[in-house]
């Protein structure tokens, strides 16, 4: 038998080309030491860059191995898209938490950096692989993760509509919060690991009290449209949300009042507090910068789909 055409090789090329053509970066984090930046994408890959060349203006020096634009580490951590990433110092270790299509992973940051992307070393750098449950026998995805250095907890929002937390050091399950009727798309922490905030496909944002074991408040910022992103200001006094309603909503948490709605003309998939501003990106090729009072301060052109 003489194989005339290698269909598997052909499919592999098509698959990798398609994945590359539609690759999306879902999250970016900075190391606590401030020297590295890591980005995770839809192919399950994490890439780590050194920041010092960027600060010296050499970041976009395209080119060959060794140039600042080439990642220090390129490692495949999951078999599917990595939707959420967080990096924090827990105990004596810096831990990278990744929420992905096939579950939750915790990685030793120092070992990951030292691995150089070599598969065996990357596998050895994994601290824990946690089961996020399943829906109808199918493993659920982890859409968002948050790390709390104080309590040593990793909190994640799952495709089963739950908020789950584990102890990073021991890997033991800490709590599961239920109440959303659809998948959780983003999570944040109000000061501690026991006070998570979750945004969901069901159109609500829930504030949780894990110690009490329940939901302390439920907000509906988009009139029922899915909520894909949330951000808390450093004092956890303000909450910004965005999603399918094509707007960013600003909430005052103490009074649970929606103070402002900022329209973006396209669905929002990421929001960030930056000083006195709120940055938002999503399906449109624009990055929006709003004042805290809801006025559009700037609209910056970016690549399509900043979410």
């Amino acid at each position: 038998m003489d194989t005339y055409f290698d269909l598997d090789a052909f499919r592999a090329r098509v698959s990798s080309s398609t994945a590359e053509a539609h690759a999306t970066v879902y999250g970016v984090v900075y190391s606590p030491c401030g020297e590295y930046m890591a980005a995770v994408d839809s192919r399950g890959v994490v890439r780590v860059w050194a920041l010092s060349p960027a600060l010296q203006g050499e970041w976009w020096a395209e080119g060959e191995d060794g140039s600042p634009g080439v990642p220090l580490v390129t490692a495949t951590l999951h078999r599917g898209p990595i939707y959420g990433v967080e990096l924090a110092e827990i105990g004596s270790k810096v831990v990278l938490a990744t929420g992905a299509s096939d579950g939750l992973g915790l990685w030793d940051w120092a070992a990951l950096l030292a691995s150089g992307g070599e598969a065996t070393a990357v596998a050895a750098a994994q601290l824990l692989a946690l089961d996020a449950g399943d829906v109808a026998g199918t493993p659920v995805e982890v859409n968002a993760v948050a790390l709390d250095p104080a309590s040593g907890l990793v909190v994640c929002g799952t495709g089963a509509g739950e908020v789950r937390a584990w102890d990073v050091a021991t890997g033991s399950h800490s709590y599961t919060l239920t109440g959303h009727t659809d998948m959780v798309l983003d999570v944040g922490l109000r000061g501690s690991g026991s006070a998570p905030v979750s945004a969901s496909e069901d159109g609500t944002v829930k504030l949780w009290d894990a110690k009490a074991g329940g939901c302390s408040a439920s907000l509906q910022p988009g009139g029922g449209a899915w909520v894909g992103a949330l951000a808390l200001d450093p004092d956890a006094s303000w909450l910004a949300t965005g999603g399918g309603d094509c707007a960013v909503s600003l909430w005052h948490l103490a009074s649970l009042t929606q103070t402002t709605t900022m329209e973006t003309k396209a669905c929002v998939q990421t929001v960030v507090f930056a000083d006195e501003h709120v940055l938002a990106g999503g399906a449109s090729p624009w990055l929006y910068r709003f004042n805290i009072n809801g006025r559009l301060a700037a609209k910056l052109p970016v690549t399509r789909g900043t979410g």
Binding site: R11, V14, S15, H22
Partner: peptide, 19 residues
């Protein structure tokens, strides 16, 4: 389309058909 989805699904459709 701009209000509801992104290009990701187009890529997934292409992969379904091609691969």
């Amino acid at each position: 389309q701009a209000g509801l989805s992104t290009d990701n699904n187009v890529g997934v459709m292409a992969a379904e058909v091609n691969v």
